[in-house]
């Protein structure tokens, strides 16, 4: 450290030096960083096992400096269940996109939540299949154009976008559900707080913890990163409102 300078920020040691492959502006990078900061701040590197999905974040293990298992498409919740059952005292999370968690993996998601599996879901809902080239997701907004809904999503044909945070918050053994975003600095700070709370509740063995991130995909939304933030504010958040859907009751002091 240079004399007279004060270190106010540095990359957490829980992130590797590998340069991320994500498109400019993508929240995957932001969320990786926030999560790994929390792991470092809680001193959990030695006790954390992550599960990465198939989707744009398939390479998340290149960036997260922790033990990771790569799951088959949609199966992260089952893989995380297996890991957590063997290591009930370690911190386990699954990191999944909307195609992964809410289409091909819906059964695994619902049943892990219903059992109250004591791990944390980090659900990156960008309303589209990023990795495979911008096809419609179960969370694509009504009227939103994608390569498989080129005239806009039609509910009469494919139903309405799935609200996963709302759905899983109904399960008795789910402890904590919050929807966050990273579209503003303030929201990103809240997202980090939510991750921290989820990890803390997990370590207290309170049940399933579920963080949905109203995320973006400038490349497949065919817009600039800045425009993607406006789209979130104007279109995503009115349908997918931010906030806590469920939280363990605070003990009276």
């Amino acid at each position: 450290m240079k004399e007279g300078y004060e270190l106010i920020y540095q990359r957490p040691k829980t992130l590797t030096d590998t340069r991320m492959h994500y498109c400019p502006g993508c929240f995957h990078s932001t969320m990786h960083k926030l999560m790994m900061e929390v792991v470092e701040e809680m001193d959990l590197q030695e006790n954390t096992i992550g599960v990465c999905p198939v989707g744009c974040s398939v390479f998340a293990y290149e960036y997260m400096n922790i033990d990771v298992q790569e799951a088959a498409h949609g199966r992260a919740a089952a893989v995380a269940t297996g890991i957590k059952r063997i290591h009930p005292d370690k911190l386990v999370f699954s990191y999944q996109g909307d195609g992964d968690l809410a289409a091909i993996g819906t059964a695994e998601t619902i049943h892990a939540c219903n059992r109250g599996e004591n791990f944390t879901f980090i659900f990156i809902n960008n309303g589209i299949y990023g990795m495979t080239g911008g096809q419609m997701a179960p969370t694509t907004l009504v009227g939103q154009k994608t390569s498989t809904s080129p005239y806009g999503r039609e509910p009469a044909k494919v139903g309405l976008p799935l609200k996963m945070a709302e759905i899983v918050s109904r399960f008795g053994r789910v402890a904590y559900v919050e929807r966050v975003s990273c579209n503003t600095a303030a929201n990103a700070r809240k997202a980090k707080k939510a991750v921290r709370k989820a990890f803390e509740y997990q370590l207290q063995k309170l049940g399933t913890t579920f963080i949905e991130v109203a995320s973006n995909c400038p490349s497949q939304w065919k817009c600039t990163p800045e425009e993607s933030l406006d789209w979130i504010k104007d279109h995503v958040l009115p349908y997918f409102p931010l906030g806590v859907f469920k939280e363990p009751e605070k003990k009276e002091k």
Partner: peptide, 14 residues
């Protein structure tokens, strides 16, 4: 489908 992936997770975790 879930069972085999739980195997994958638990087997991978040792």
């Amino acid at each position: 489908v879930a069972a085999v992936n739980m195997m994958y997770g638990a087997g991978g975790a040792g």
